[in-house]
Every structure is written in structure tokens, then in C-alpha cells.
Amino acid sequence: MKTALVIGTGLIGTSAALTLAGRGVAVHLVDHDPDRARTAAALGAGSDEPPPGRVDLAIVAVPPAHTAAVLAEAMRTGVARGYIDVASVKSGPRRELEDLDIDLSAYIGTHPMAGKETSGPLAATADLFEGRPWVLTPVSDTDTEVLNLALELVALCGAVPVVMDAAAHDRAVALVSHTPQLISSMVAARLEGADETFVRLCGQGIHDVTRIAASDPRMWIEILSANPGPVADVLADVAADLEETVESLRALQSADEAKRRGGAAGIANVLSRGNAGRSRVPGKHGAAPAAYETVAVLISDEPGELARIFADAGHAGVNIEDVRIDHATGQQAGLVQLMVGPAAADALSATLRERGWSIRR
């Protein structure tokens, strides 16, 4: 691939453009808002000037509601040898294109399983897709050259190609992406009118659960409007679990010992099933989940403290697998939780203590 056209310079489009431009591909940027394209170009994602001729690959990175129309226009004008979209729903855009009676041999639907709760070109990064699954949904009439271009894009972005049927993809993202977004928003909504004293007690758990609730509602309305049935099916199962859990909690309030035992069993059941489900979530680089040990370090809220703690961890020769920061309420301090392999935890703790850090294990 030598040339590419990115149509839509939001988070995904600009991130792909940054990666391709960094790999020596001549990238051209188009957006319905010229300022966004200029911003992406200023970030090094390519040129906001039109391509001088036909490009190798056109990447359509617009909301699902507009994907088919933008693809159809690009394909009618013949701007590229191959066309892909990166919309988070796959069945709808293809059906719309079929209804427009467009030759789809030069098109393949794709979806990189990467994103952030923030959007726009300024949120983009060249490493957004590294190690992440990138779904491809070819069909029998997909041209081999186009499939190869899509695979080349995935490889250049450092992602992992996953070939799926479009309908199966939509059911999958309903489970692992769309429903979690709604549930996160529902939990966060409980905080809107909560007493300020209660909110000040928020810890890492509520931060983890509600992080994606900061996402743009307008974007998610468009995504959910394109995949409502599969999401509703998953939420119906969640609703059944919620109803049973509420009944179990009410039973725990009963004066009847048998009802309390039944309530405890119901809660244990949902928690155990949660453990089992969580154990299936892939770990680092898509590998099997790994068990890490946490070394918590008390840290002051001063410039350079995080850099210093990572430098000191480096002296221990320990690889930090993950990091969480839990700020202390009402104080200019917090806990940095360093996740490491169990065999490395003691060495890291010892080194950090020697260098003056206060450790919580």
C-alpha cells in the first residue's frame, strides 16, 4: 500500500492515518468539517489536500448512520482500488449498500476493537490499535486484492485480524462493547443526584465501572440505533439477573433463616458466575488472563512523582504490567497500584522501600 484516503478524521480515522503516515504511506484526509481534517493533518496524519489520482485504499471512518452513503459516493467516483469502513456495526451498512445496487466486490466491512471515551482527532494516537483485534467481514464476492489491502492495513497498525460473519460480529459487540457502555452509564447515572458526601467516598471500583460513561451520548445513540436488537437481547438477560439479585438481597433481610440462606445462595451464584465470566476476558496482547500481584505505593500529588516511581521500579528490573491510581479524598495524595507478576512483587516492594516509598501490600 502506497496511498490511502481517510474519510472522517475522528479518533479512529485519525489514529489509522497517523499509523499509515508513520509507515511511509501517502495519506489524504477528508472530513465534512474541514477544520477537523486540518487538525489531523497538523498532527502528522497526512495531507488535507485531495489525492491527485486513485489511491490504493479508502478508509471510511464516519458514524454508522452515514457509513453506507459515504461509501456509496466514494465508490461511485472511483477514488480507490479498495474500500473499507471501520463502523462498529457491520450488517446494516452492507444491507444499505446492497439496496443502492452498488458492486461490492471492492468493499470489505471492518471494525477495529479499539477506542477511548474521548473522541476527535486530538484524541488520536498512532498506537491505538496495537495488539487489538480488528474484525474483517469478507463475503464470497469480496475481491482478493481488497482483502489483502485490508490485511495490510491491519498489519501496519499492529492489530490482530479476526475474520467473522457480519451478523455474528454485531451480536458479539452487543455483548462485549455496547451493553457494557449502557450499564456503565446506568451506574454513573445513580451518582447524578446523590448526596455530595456519598460521592466523595468514590474509590477505584466506581472509577473502573463508570470510566466509559464519559463517552459522547450523540455517538452512542448512533451506534445503538444501528444495533438495537442484539443489545436489547443481552440487556434482557442482565435484567433477569438483576431481578433475581434484588429478590436475593430482599431475602437476606428476612427474619426467616431459610429465606436468608436462599438469598445468600442467590448472591453467591451471581458473584461466582461473574468470576467465571471475568476469567474468560483475554489478558495482555490477547493471551490468557494472567494473575498479577498488586504493590500499592503511597504517592504525593507533586510534579514528577509518577516518573520517579517508574524509574525506581526500573532499578528493580521489574516489568510493570498495569497501573491504577486511586486518589485520596480531600488530600493531595493517593495510591499508585502497580500490577506485577507474583514472583516480582517482593523484589519491587523491597527496592521501593529502600528508595523511600511507603508500600501498602
Rank of each mutant, 00 (worst) to 15 (best):
A328R: 13
E293P: 01
A288F: 00
G304N: 03
D301V: 04
G283N: 05
R308I: 03
A287Y: 05
A343W: 09
I325F: 11
E302P: 00
G314Y: 09
R308W: 04
G286M: 02
R280L: 15
L298F: 09
V340T: 10
H285V: 07
M339V: 04
A344R: 06
L306T: 11
V318F: 13
A316L: 05
H285S: 14
H315L: 15
D322C: 04
A316N: 05
A313L: 12
R280P: 00
E302M: 07
D312E: 14
T294S: 10
L298K: 12
I309F: 08
A288Y: 00
G334H: 06
R324L: 10
P342W: 08
A344C: 10
I325W: 04
A296E: 09
S300K: 11
D301H: 10
G341I: 12
Q337I: 09
R308V: 01
K284A: 14
V336A: 04
L338K: 10
R280V: 03
A344I: 01
D301Y: 04
P282I: 02
H327C: 02
V295G: 02
L298V: 14
G317W: 13
P289L: 10
G317E: 08
E321I: 08
E302V: 11
G314K: 12
A343L: 13
G330Y: 09
A287I: 02
V295T: 05
H315A: 15
G341C: 07
G317A: 11
E321G: 04
R324W: 01
G334W: 04
P282W: 03
G330P: 01
A328T: 14
I299A: 14
E293Q: 15
G334T: 07
R324I: 03
A343H: 15
A307Q: 11
G283T: 06
D326N: 13
D301C: 05
G314Q: 11
I320T: 12
G330Q: 04
V340P: 01
P282M: 01
A328G: 07
P289Y: 09
V323I: 15
Q332F: 01
Q331M: 09
G304F: 13
G341A: 15
A291Y: 03
A291K: 08
A311R: 14
Q331G: 00
Q332H: 07
L306M: 11
P289A: 12
Q332C: 02
E293Y: 12
A291H: 08
V318D: 02
L338T: 10
G334K: 07
A287G: 14
G283M: 06
G334M: 06
A316I: 03
V318A: 06
L335F: 10
